[in-house]
Amino acid sequence: MAIKRERELAKRLAKEYGYLPYMIERYLALWGEEETREFLEACERPIRTAIRVNTLKAEVEEVIGRLKDKGVKLERIPWLPEGFWAEFDELSPGALTEHMLGFYYIQGVPSMTVTRVLDPQPGEIVMDLAAAPGGKTTHVAQLMRNEGIVVAIEQDRLRLGSLKSNVYRCGVTNAIILRGDARKVRQLGIVPDRILLDAPCSGEGLIPIDPSRKTSKKMPDIRFCATVEDELLDAAVDVLAPGGTMVYATCSIAPEENEYIVDAILGRHPEMRVASIDQEFGSPGYTNPYGIEMNNSLSLARRFLPHRHGTEGFFICKLVKEGDDQ
């Protein structure tokens, strides 16, 4: 009876907000009716534009001053020293000279947060396994102050062009850019200190930005993404240096692409554990999504949710591999 009622509610909400019903059914199972409605409402509201000041090219204060002179309103993001919410009004954020000069990168708040959680250090070897268009690669290089190596891998030839363009624009000089399938990363024989896996995903967190996502993906698409994510994460775990740190992130809110994936990895790789995240943002990862018991440490992962945090949806999980830091 309850199931039938929930199905009908899902259908109704799906119609009202323009979604495929299976999505709403999952939200109801995950959050219940009230939170689902909050989520659906939040997805109707635009996400605030944000920028990351690129300190490889200019000082934060200089960029702020120049943008303010042009009438851009900026507000600091508490946990991101180089991140700002930015109101450009009628100006086009990508067309300003300061953007072309590489002084800033237009980037979602969750995306900037991912790289801060990874916390790459100057002199390290860092791998970015799904790199284009380079928002996080350029941020990694920035935090490394161009010292050390960031190996950026991207499979898609077209997207590789935008990755290179952004790397050059931002003045990154410590990147090695490779085209290929990151699932084959073991072949490279590189043992990175840190790995960023901003995995290709179904994009279920991007509905506020891309409403077509309400109807563009079916359950098999999510399953397909989950398979690739699992393979990528598995390869990443294998190559990470003992004592190394890795961040698994997606712009999907689907537990099937997030907690499920990490839970399976923890099961297969006892050398891996979820680490706590220092920065304060978002809400905890789920340990019991759809009533399925997961590794408790997944509560240390973080979620950005449109209805809770006013951002696109994102999942961020920091993992460490047992062993001595070299």
């Binding site: 290179k164 000089t173 990147a175 090695i176 850019i177 490779l178 290929g180 399938d181 084959k184 072949q187």
Partner: peptide, 8 residues
């Protein structure tokens, strides 16, 4: 297995 596309 990879194609080097850019470095430094």
């Amino acid at each position: 297995g990879f194609t080097l596309s850019s470095l430094g």
